[in-house]
Each structure stands twice: as C-alpha cells, then as structure tokens.
Design a protein around this nucleic acid. Structure first.
Lengths: 183, 183
DNA sequence: TTTATATATGTAAATATAGACATATAGAAC
DNA sequence: GTTCTATATGTCTATATTTACATATATAAA
C-alpha cells in the first residue's frame, strides 16, 4: 500500500469511479499514468480494499466501476493518522531559471510566457470546477460548507489550486517585467 | 541526459559545487537522494560535461568539486530552447484532504497545523536566503537586478519560493478556520 | 470512408527514484 | 571516551514511474 494506492482509495471515498476517471482526477495531486493505475486497482481489488462492477455504456466503451469496501474505509482511516510526507515539487522550468543568464532573452521570455499561459488556463479550469462544485453540493448559499460534507475536501483543494495558480501567474508576470522586452 | 542531469549542469553554471552541495541545493526544485546524484555526476564527468577536482579540507572530509565544461555549457544552451515539461506536484496531504470528512477532527487539525508550520519555516528559510543573496550579489541598492547577472535566476526563484510559501500558509490558516476548534 | 479524438482497459520493458548498506572525517555535546 | 550530527562519497537492491506496445468502441470531423 503506497501513497498512490491510498490516493485512489481517497477518491473512492467520495464516490465510485472507473479506473479511467480515477486516472484523470488524481493528476493534479499525484500525477500517474493509466499503466500505473490499472495494475494497482487490480491489486486493491484482490486485497478487498475495493470492489468492481462492470457497467455497460451505449455511447462509450464499457467500463469497470470501483467502490470502496469496509476494509478500504478502515485502511483510509488508519492512513489519516500516520505522518504525512512533505510535498514534492519537480519543475524543469525552475532548473532552467537557474541558468537563465546563459539563455537567449527570447528563449527566456517564451518559457515564462508559456508558463504564464499554463497557470492562467489552470486557474480558469479550477474556477469552473468551483462553480460546478457549489452547484452539486448545495451548501448554505451565504454560509460556508461544513467539514462533515463529503465534498468539503474537494472544496478546500479547488480553492488551493486557484490560489496557487494566481500566485504563480503573478510570479510569471513579475519575472517577465524584469526581462528586456526585445533582444 | 535526463532532467536531473540538466539540473545539475544548471546549478554548476552558477558556480562550482561538490556532489554533496549539489544534492542539498537541488532539493527545492528537483528532490533527489545522494544515491541518485553521485552516479549521475560520474556519468556526466565521463561524458565530459563536467570536470572534477579533489579538494582537501581541514575541518571537514575531503570533497570532489565539479565544474561545468565547454561541452556542458553547450548542452545547457540547447536544453534551454527545448520545450519545458509542466510542473509535477506530488502531495500526500492533498490526497488526505479529499477524504477529510472521514477523519477525526483532531487528526485533520493536526495535519493542517503541521503543514502550516512547515510553510512558515520554509518562508523564513527563503527570506534569509534572499538577504544572503542580496549581500553576495551587490546589485544597485535601490534598483533591480539585471537578467545578465549570474545570480538573477536564484533571485527569481527565491522570490517564487517565498510567494508560494506565503500562499500555502494563507490556505492552511483558512482551512483551519473552517474546522471546529474542538472535538 | 478515412481520420482523429475521447473513452476505456490492459501488459512489458526501460528508466527514475528511494531505501538500505557501507565507510570515513571532524566537531560538538555528554 | 562515547555518542551524536554534519559533512562527504559510494554501491546495491527494491520500488515507483514512464514509455511503448496492444486492443476496442463510439462520436465527430474531414
């Protein structure tokens, strides 16, 4: 049971999902390819942490929908009380920034402009997600969601993503403002 | 030549470092253990991207100091013009937040409080680094550093780290404010 | 009709990363 | 003197992760 396994269980605590869905949804927090997800789901199912159900679809290929079992729920609760690893960020851009004085000004500007666009796009994505979340969750219009609500975690994380992307956007703009506008 | 290799070259573009130093300095941008760094440095030296010099020390064990070669410098410049991978964040805490409605309130509070302390500590660390950097770099007291300055990249990255840690601190406080103060 | 894309699931091989094992020097604390 | 920590370098094994290979269905576009 590694971190990715617990991550899959964590997503399944909110709702049942297919392997494909889980793969898409876990990306922002723990990037993983489908080739890593599918074998893990098979193991988790063998270990009785999750159960499977084949769902036939008309407009799309059939899928396997996974659900958390009682044993999975227990594993999740135990996991929560264990020490949490520090976040690990791997960013090629930051490594490039180190030797930016070596780069052609045009290259540096392009790199930062690309990253700026990335963060602006991400921010939009998560703001849509927040609207969608509010519609689904129907917590008090004026008030705040309660920690007991199943979507409370998703609400916190969506806000976190928006805040991070705003800050990173701001940094990109600032960095670009320090570079000469032309070669 | 993977990303970590370029990262090591990137650090060596600023100044010569020992393997141990490189290992410590690359952590914030590309976490790696010494067991990964040392063999890579041997490969890079074999490939003539870097050169080694044995330096004897009185107060500490002797060390190997690596320097960027002409070939290394060229590789670095080529790398800069290649497309940059998106940042990859892996954070166990975020996965735990998903299923926070399942956790004991005390566990959730502790997790967020620990993370808050982590970001506050990191912020202090990078603020000290910024002071140190300004002392070393001696750019115009009132003005801003020039992109051609060897420490320009480090200056940008230190600011980025401070900004990110501030935002994450703010998020932790906000999340804690939504949780009940007692069980 | 062929082509592309999204959905959907799987395996095999290569690479990257972490953890354990190993050794050694010097300073500080006890 | 013993123990702990930081510095310093290395290897070996296990695990995690990516890339490539494989297949299939349904929709939309060209």
């Amino acid at each position: 049971m590694n971190t990715l396994s617990y991550g899959l269980l964590s997503l399944l605590a909110q709702s049942s999902f297919s392997g494909y869905d889980l793969m898409l949804r876990i990306q922002p927090f723990w990037p993983a390819k489908h080739s890593q997800i599918y074998p893990l789901l098979a193991k988790l199912e063998q270990g009785d942490y999750i159960s499977v159900e084949l769902v036939t679809q008309r407009d799309k290929p059939d899928k396997k929908v996974y659900s958390l079992t009682g044993k999975g729920r227990d594993a999740l609760k135990d996991w929560f009380d264990q020490p949490t690893a520090d976040p690990a960020l791997r960013d090629e851009m930051m490594l490039k920034v180190f030797c930016m004085s070596y780069a052609k000004p045009a290259s540096a500007r392009k790199m930062l402009a690309d990253r700026l666009a990335f963060h602006e796009e991400q921010r939009k994505k998560y703001e849509s997600k927040l609207v969608e979340l509010k519609a689904r969750a129907d917590w008090p219009a004026a008030g705040l969601p309660k920690p007991s609500h199943p979507l409370f975690g998703a609400y916190l994380l969506t806000h976190k993503a928006i805040m991070s992307n705003e800050t990173n956007t701001e940094w990109c703009r600032w960095a670009l403002s320090l570079l000469p506008a032309e070669d």
